[in-house]
């Protein structure tokens, strides 16, 4: 067993994929914390689905499957979708969840129509495009990981730089406004970072599972701490552990798809946290309640 593990850890492909997945976990853990606290968990779902038409259009117009170009397409349509959701919410009585559902499904439908259109083109080989729907971590290359590292460094650097502003905005944006911090500006920056984080993960875990990467590490981390700074660090750590763990399991078991395994790993961490986290966890609260009941009983018994 240990021998197999050493072989795997020395394997170059494994190192690349594990590094990429870990990086993805870190990025989505950090920015997901803010998305979850802003109650925008499903923004990830919306943006990742909505990226599809942008990806296909970028491919159709340039004919390239270069990650950077496809990502720029995804960025454009993902950001557009987030903007539409805000626009619908602001200008009508449609609830934000309905607006998300509408934009998500229409953009995805448009993407599919474009995808099938590109399939009909004579020279199109859109294998690279399918990656964006299901994600294929195992096909990650050095260039992809390099891109992730750079984007990740920029994203996390921005979060560190604007930590105070993001905290203030996420917690109490109206108060921030009275201090002279324009909410619209902070909102635009933060949303942009979250959209970037989502898109960088698309080719690893795909459209459907990206929202899990955004939400789940943050939810798990929240159970262990009452400080935002620790929550973000823990979420990044959990994300990275799930990334490496998922990659490891999928390379040990043949036919095991990497993306879904990463998601199951992070979900397992979240379930464990919800049950067993000290103080907040379900178990801790049950024990607390039992102790309280005992105390109460003793008190009543003592009086009578």
């Amino acid at each position: 067993m240990i021998e197999t593990l050493t072989v795997i850890f020395q394997d170059y492909t494994f190192q690349i994929v594990a590094l990429g997945s870990a990086m993805l976990g870190v990025i989505s853990g950090v920015l997901g914390s803010f998305a979850v606290l802003r109650k925008q968990s499903l923004l990830g779902d919306c943006v990742s689905h909505s990226a599809l038409p942008g990806v296909v259009l970028a491919f159709l117009s340039t004919g390239e499957k270069n990650s950077v170009i496809l990502l720029l397409g995804a960025l454009a349509s993902g950001f557009l979708a987030a903007g539409f959701v805000t626009l619908i919410g602001r200008n009508s009585k449609v609830k934000s969840d309905a607006a998300q559902g509408i934009i998500l499904s229409v953009f995805f439908g448009l993407g599919m129509a474009l995808l099938t259109f590109s399939q009909n083109l004579p020279n199109a080989n859109q294998a690279g495009l399918k990656r964006f729907i299901y994600g294929q971590a195992s096909t990650m290359r050095r260039g992809d990981v390099f891109l992730m590292l750079i984007v990740g460094a920029v994203l996390i650097g921005t979060v560190v730089l604007l930590w105070k502003e993001f905290l203030l905005f996420t917690f109490d944006s109206a108060y921030g406004e009275t201090l002279g911090f324009r909410s619209a500006r902070i909102n635009a920056i933060l949303t942009f970072l979250i959209v970037c984080a989502i898109l960088i993960g698309l080719q690893t875990v795909g459209v459907v599972l990206m929202s899990a990467m955004l939400i789940t590490p943050a939810v798990a981390a929240r159970q262990w701490t009452d400080r935002l700074s620790w929550m973000v660090v823990l979420a990044a750590l959990f994300g990275a552990v799930a990334g490496v763990g998922g990659t490891l399991v999928s390379s040990l078991v043949p036919e095991m798809p990497t993306g879904p395994v990463i998601v199951v790993c992070i979900s397992a961490i979240a379930i464990f946290s919800v049950f067993f986290a000290p103080r907040r966890g379900i178990l801790a609260r049950l024990i607390e309640r039992a102790r309280f009941r005992k105390l109460l009983k003793a008190e009543i018994g003592g009086e009578s």
Partner: peptide, 13 residues
């Protein structure tokens, strides 16, 4: 322990 939108996202994924 978590908000509804987060719960939806976790469960289905």
């Amino acid at each position: 322990l978590l908000k509804e939108d987060a719960a939806i996202g976790i469960v289905y994924s």
